[in-house]
Design a protein around this nucleic acid. Structure first.
Length: 212
DNA sequence: CGCCAGGGCCTCA
DNA sequence: TGAGGCCATGGC
């Protein structure tokens, strides 16, 4: 039992199962009537909503992102073609609450263009590192956003490192300020089995821990 | 009122 | 490659 396993067990005992990524009830209407949380049985639309959410939550509180996602759902815009057809200023207005809306409107269009070429179903069958490289080549998608998409939408076994992860490991004294994203990610992935469900819960628990 | 959220890009050494 | 500026809303 290593210290990362112990950390997970402690957080799990404290906060319980988190069932991430949070998906809005609206996105469940189209393909599946029941609300679904956690790893299994997500619809295409829910996966797309997760991808949009991963971009919208960049340096932004989830509360503000949730409003934007609800607005997108109201207008039936969890849809690749509709996003691409929408004018930039219109899309910006819809996602306004998530902040940086001009940049994020552009990013949503970028990812939709990408998903036309590489549909989600196709990405799911591809190699993890291959997809990661493709995502990182998209302007507006950095390591955390790419890994969030890989883990929560595509269900690939990667560990997501965010500011909360850094803060917690810094507090534990396991990392240094200067340690890179990839170095921190490697610590987790070397210490833990390649289990998407475990990485999913672990990251969600770290966020929960930091909010309390 | 100021601070800062589940980042990432660009610029300039 | 690394530090600093920039993007922007809403909750507290």
């Amino acid at each position: 039992m290593n210290k990362f396993q112990n950390l997970f067990d402690d957080l799990f005992a404290k906060h319980g199962s988190q069932g991430w990524w949070p998906v809005t009830p609206q996105s469940c209407h189209n393909d599946d009537p029941k609300p679904i949380y956690g790893l299994l049985g997500k619809s295409e639309k829910q996966k797309l909503e997760i991808i949009f959410g991963a971009i919208l939550t960049q340096n932004t509180s989830w509360k503000n992102v949730e409003k934007a996602i609800i607005e997108l759902n109201k207008r039936d815009l969890i849809d690749i073609e509709k996003i691409l057809k929408l004018r930039m200023d219109e899309l910006g207005a819809v996602i306004r609450s998530s902040g940086y809306y001009n940049q994020k409107a552009k990013k949503l269009k970028e990812i939709c263009t990408f998903l036309k070429k590489y549909p989600i179903a196709k990405l799911e069958k591809m190699d993890l590192l291959e997809v990661r490289k493709l995502l990182l080549a998209i302007s507006g998608i950095g390591p955390e956003t790419a890994d969030s998409i890989l883990l929560y939408a595509l269900e690939k076994p990667v560990f997501v490192v965010d500011t909360y992860t850094r803060r917690l490991l810094l507090k534990e004294g396991w990392i240094d300020e200067k340690d890179s994203y990839d170095e921190i990610q490697k610590l987790f992935m070397d210490a833990l089995p390649d289990d998407p469900q475990l990485f999913n819960e672990f990251h969600a628990l770290i966020v929960s821990e930091n909010k309390h």
